[in-house]
């Protein structure tokens, strides 16, 4: 009996721990794979509507061009008129913001708010959960009509916007809800992704709703959060020219 217990402690427990960890990584890889376009480029129009708690709406329309295999994207702001021509260029780990008025590029961070909305610049990146996070806990739960696996994630590096996350993944490996936490464990943001659209053999959200928990207000005894709704339309898998992912392109489109 004693030998059996030692056998369990020394062999079975570490093996089951390692296999659980590797299955978590495989799970996250599958989640990443579902929304990553490694063989094609992807372009789409994003409509971002920010609503302040109890306040006015502001709308931003942008076109996003992404090349996941090279870790690149370009976002070109189309609306509002005052920001028209502004652009974001990401090449590898570098992210620049182009201002057509100054005709200058400034370094910006993936962690910055996108056009003062609840979205972060990193939300436009390809999904890389399996490399950026480790799973610290998981459980099954129902989210509306979806049977989900809830994964608690902890960042493996400092590049990510949020050190702790909780994601709800439906049986088709699509993320349906995300809760983003600060280092101290305070809920900062909740993102709901109720619908996806198929683009080729991959998926792209139809819309996302982001609630900023730091920017909330009690109105008529009800807490209202800053809410950002992102609607993604006109997806295209057409091949994009290499010159598009360059500073010259952002300068050229503003001439």
């Amino acid at each position: 009996m004693k030998h059996f217990c030692i056998f369990i402690i020394l062999v079975i427990l570490p093996v089951s721990f390692i296999s659980a960890q590797s299955s978590d990584i495989e799970f996250l890889k599958e989640v990443d794979r579902m929304v990553t376009f490694n063989t094609t480029d992807i372009a789409a129009e994003y409509k971002i509507v920010k609503r302040d708690p109890g306040g006015a709406n502001s709308t931003t329309v942008a076109t996003m061009f992404r090349r996941d295999r090279a870790n690149q994207f370009v976002i070109l702001i189309l609306e509002p008129v005052v920001d028209k021509g502004k652009g974001y260029l990401k090449i590898g780990d570098n992210l620049w913001l182009y201002d057509p008025i100054d005709r200058s590029f400034t370094f910006t961070s993936a962690k910055e708010r996108f056009q003062n909305s609840s979205a972060r610049n990193s939300d436009f990146n390809q999904s890389n959960l399996s490399n950026d996070y480790k799973v610290t806990g998981s459980q099954k739960a129902k989210l509306g009509v979806f049977n989900c696996t809830i994964l608690e994630l902890e960042a493996l590096n400092d590049r990510v916007s949020f050190p702790k996350r909780k994601i709800w993944v439906s049986e088709d490996y699509l993320i349906r809800k995300i809760e983003d936490y600060s280092m101290s464990g305070q809920l900062m943001r909740t993102t709901a992704i109720p619908n996806y659209q198929t683009v080729g053999d991959r998926w792209l959200p139809v819309n996302m709703v982001i609630l900023d928990h730091l920017r909330s207000k009690r109105i008529n005894n009800k807490i209202e959060y800053e809410r950002t709704t992102i609607t993604i339309s006109k997806p295209s898998l057409s091949e994009l020219p290499d010159t598009l992912f360059s500073k010259e392109y952002l300068e050229r489109v503003n001439r």
Binding site: S109, S182, M188, L214
Partner: peptide, 16 residues
């Protein structure tokens, strides 16, 4: 009130 800062590593942290 909630206090928000970024750590030297760039990570967000908050405290009530």
């Amino acid at each position: 009130i909630t206090l928000f800062i970024t750590l030297s590593s760039g990570q967000y942290n908050t405290k009530t």
